[in-house]
Design a binder for these strands. Structure first.
Length: 267
DNA sequence: CTCCAGATGC
DNA sequence: GCATCTGGAG
């Protein structure tokens, strides 16, 4: 398939498979930032209710920046990777402090925000500002592996990037990437499992028995309110050393804090 | 068991 | 480079 032909094909798939989402109805930069952080390694269906609740509670950058972290963590609990909540909270404060309350519109500037890497910055620039930039994530990989590297393995992002550059619709980048998301997601739901042919694929460690499992339980327990270290340990310690590791991590990352024997989510 | 609109820290 | 961070759905 020629590049122009592929671009048209993606648009056609996007029209047929379009998914309505709140951050597509309103592409305000703050909406896009929140949704993109939530969508890191997390399915759309799980993000939707959390996004609505988050926006109702923190409707703009200033509201988020001036709220205590503990409020953000309470709302985030259940979504997973709760350190993203802290990154987002810090990003909001940085936007207020260094960018006069407005999200920067360049990929490089966005990358300075905590929790925003080159790919999330690319997504923000695409969806919030409709600028033609190349970025790679799992749906992009699935689509391009399917159409340009059907018989290859160990395909690097650099190889995929080359194809995206050749086929990206620079007149309608936002629509084009929406189409890639919807088509890639559709391929996966319909049995295309090619992501392991990406050079950057890493098999994920099981959650059961992991430190991160206990870590999540600690944060969830503390969303009910502060408590003594002893009570916390009784509630979630699995007795195999995982509690101590998870607890130390959370202290170091400052998601939780300890005063005397009392433990609580960071204010 | 697998996967997910990845980033960070080492 | 590699391990770690979450939790739910299929």
């Amino acid at each position: 398939m020629q590049p122009e032909e592929f671009t048209l094909f993606v648009h056609e798939r996007g029209t047929a498979l379009f998914r309505d989402m709140p951050w597509r109805r309103d592409t305000d930069a703050y909406n896009i930032l929140v949704s993109e952080i939530m969508l890191q390694q997390t399915q759309v269906d799980r993000v939707l209710p959390k996004f609505e609740a988050f926006m109702a509670r923190f409707p703009n950058v200033a509201a988020l920046a001036s709220s205590p972290l503990s409020d953000v963590l309470v709302l985030w609990s259940g979504l997973g990777y709760n350190r993203r909540a802290k990154f987002l909270h810090e990003a909001a404060k940085m936007i207020v402090r260094e960018f006069e309350g407005e999200l920067p519109s360049s990929q490089a500037e966005l990358t300075r925000l905590p929790g925003v890497g080159v790919n999330t910055a690319g997504a923000i620039v695409t969806y919030a500002f409709n600028q033609p930039v190349v970025y790679i994530e799992t749906n992009v990989r699935t689509v391009y592996l399917q159409h340009f590297f059907e018989n290859n393995s160990d395909v690097s992002d650099a190889m995929i990037r080359e194809k995206v550059e050749a086929t990206l619709d620079r007149n309608e980048p936002r629509l084009f990437y929406w189409a890639l998301m919807d088509y890639g997601s559709w391929l996966k739901r319909n049995g295309v499992k090619n992501i392991a042919r990406s050079k950057h694929y890493r098999k994920q460690a099981p959650l059961e028995g992991s430190v991160r499992q206990v870590r999540g339980r600690i944060v969830r327990a503390l969303t009910l309110g502060e408590c003594s270290l002893d009570a916390l340990q009784k509630a979630v310690d699995s007795g195999d050393g995982r509690f101590e590791k998870a607890y130390e991590q959370l202290l170091l990352e400052r998601l939780i804090q300890q005063q005397g024997e009392q433990v609580r989510l960071t204010q």
